[in-house]
Lab assay of single mutants.
Amino acid sequence: CHSECLGNCSQPDDPTKCVACRNFYLDGRCVETCPPPYYHFQDWRCVNFSFCQDLHHKCKNSRRQGCHQYVIHNNKCIPECPSGYTMNSSNLLCTPCLGPCPKVCHLLEGEKTIDSVTSAQELRGCTVINGSLIINIRGGNNLAAELEANLGLIEEISGYLKIRRSYALVSLSFFRKLRLIRGETLEIGNYSFYALDNQNLRQLWDWSKHNLTITQGKLFFHYNPKLCLSEIHKMEEVSGTKGRQERNDIALKTNGDQASCENELLKFSYIRTSFDKILLRWEPYWPPDFRDLLGFMLFYKEAPYQNVTEFDGQDACGSNSWTVVDIDPPLRSNDPKSQNHPGWLMRGLKPWTQYAIFVKTLVTFSDERRTYGAKSDIIYVQTDATNPSVPLDPISVSNSSSQIILKWKPPSDPNGNITHYLVFWERQAEDSELFELDYCLKGLKLPSRTWSPPFESEDSQKHNQSEYEDSAGECCSCPKTDSQILKELEESSFRKTFEDYLHNVVFVPRKT
């Protein structure tokens, strides 16, 4: 048989008469490798580009789960590009990614509803959504962080984005990388972005840091009482949809009607710091009717980097990364020049730590249904340095008659930039024990000054392991946590139920 035959053949030295091919099969003959313009397919066939392209389009058009959109890589027609490569849609070739590779997620039936953290986790790592997304989240724990972890990498949506009755959302900033909504599939009414009845939605994105392009379709905003109209108009300008909307697409009466839409800028007039305090004062603000001013709200939190936005980490279910302080308005003076500047002394802060701070007014709604208010920009203030805590785990070892090696770990709280350490030492008198000992005694162990690591005695271990207080009263049991108490109650309830079950099964009433 021919060298490319495997198993047997019907005619000697003829690659077209093989029972099976050793390498690849091409047009009725066995070959060692697939010549151009053919590609290896499933490690035994040679196919042309049209064959591989037909497989790709067949799966793409069917949208069946589990099928493969075949691509070409290293002269092979394979189910998908290997790690580190992405497909070129024009020629199906796998090309190296520039940075992290995109991950295209194809949605069944063309859309997916995100109504819980669990459903959001199914899209973790996706960068391109081939379909439409509907966000409908009523509640949950730590929602802002969970949504950002699972949806934060999405850069492109081919269909539309719909935010509907998501009472738990305060902001859409968890879509931190969303840059493009194509609108290839539109919501009824030709809408590519749809926001309806979101009672706590206050911000779409921080438009000073976020760009969003909507290729096709219109915007729809109705019944978002805490979303200011200025935020919607800003989205029109940034996304390129200005002029597409009709009169009733953006409701003037049901958007922002319960919001404090600040239209003035508060400026800080005085800032002073110490290692654990920050004193702030800002310019006074009074609405047209000074009785509408209820006070100020001061927001602050630790910020290692200057990239904080107002609604980071917030949701309507209680999660809030900001510390909020309510401040009463100052006494009002008739003389504008003698107006008191409101302020606040922030206490209990960490030394040498940068804080993000902003302040906003708290006002009631005027009778004319106009909203007044003022808010400052987010500023960054760093507390002063102070003395560091003591170095940890000092170790001293003498390696000769004239040297001592000293080692330690950095302090747990540096409280500033540590530039150097101060080492103090003092000579001590020799131990009298060394002169009084009889060095001729056998088995004498000389006193040693070398360091030995501390260890816990058996008594201390027994005390720590004991669940009861000892007789001397030195140790006591740790208080039980809520989960331990709940577990004990469940076990007790189970024992009672099981005992009742045994009584009912074992003891049967005697027939009379």
Rank of each mutant, 00 (worst) to 15 (best):
C261R: 04
K112V: 03
K162I: 03
A168G: 06
G131F: 00
L227S: 04
S398R: 03
V397Y: 15
V397T: 14
A259L: 12
R176S: 13
D197N: 14
C126I: 03
E302P: 10
C126A: 01
L180K: 10
Y372V: 08
I114L: 04
I214Q: 08
R247A: 09
I214L: 10
I232S: 03
R247Q: 05
E155S: 10
D115N: 12
D384Q: 06
L279R: 11
I278Q: 00
G139Q: 15
F220D: 12
L178M: 14
N224S: 00
Y300Q: 15
S192G: 13
F193D: 04
L151K: 01
R164L: 14
L265E: 09
N340L: 10
R291M: 00
I114E: 04
V359H: 00
K162Y: 11
K226R: 06
T254M: 12
T127V: 14
G131E: 03
S230T: 04
C105T: 02
T118E: 14
Y167M: 08
F174I: 13
S132N: 12
E156V: 15
V104Y: 03
H233T: 10
K253H: 14
F290M: 00
K253Y: 15
W282I: 03
S338T: 14
F221V: 10
E310F: 13
R347G: 09
P388R: 06
P287L: 04
C261F: 02
T273W: 15
S401Y: 09
Q258C: 04
L151G: 05
W344S: 11
W352G: 03
S274L: 09
E184M: 03
Y167N: 09
Q314F: 00
M297T: 02
T361I: 01
S400G: 12
W286N: 05
P394F: 04
K226A: 03
D289I: 02
K301D: 06
L151N: 02
Y160I: 12
D289A: 03
S402F: 07
D292H: 04
V397F: 15
P410R: 14
V117Y: 06
N211F: 05
K226E: 02
I379L: 10
P287Q: 01
V128T: 07
T273K: 14
L147S: 02
N190L: 10
F358M: 07
L279K: 15
G256Y: 02
H233M: 02
V363H: 05
N200A: 13
G313R: 11
E368P: 05
I327S: 05
F193P: 03
I357A: 06
I379N: 03
N334A: 07
H222Y: 04
E187W: 13
N130W: 02
K409S: 07
N307L: 14
M346G: 14
I114K: 01
I134V: 14
P388A: 06
L280Q: 00
E109F: 13
Q382N: 12
S402V: 15
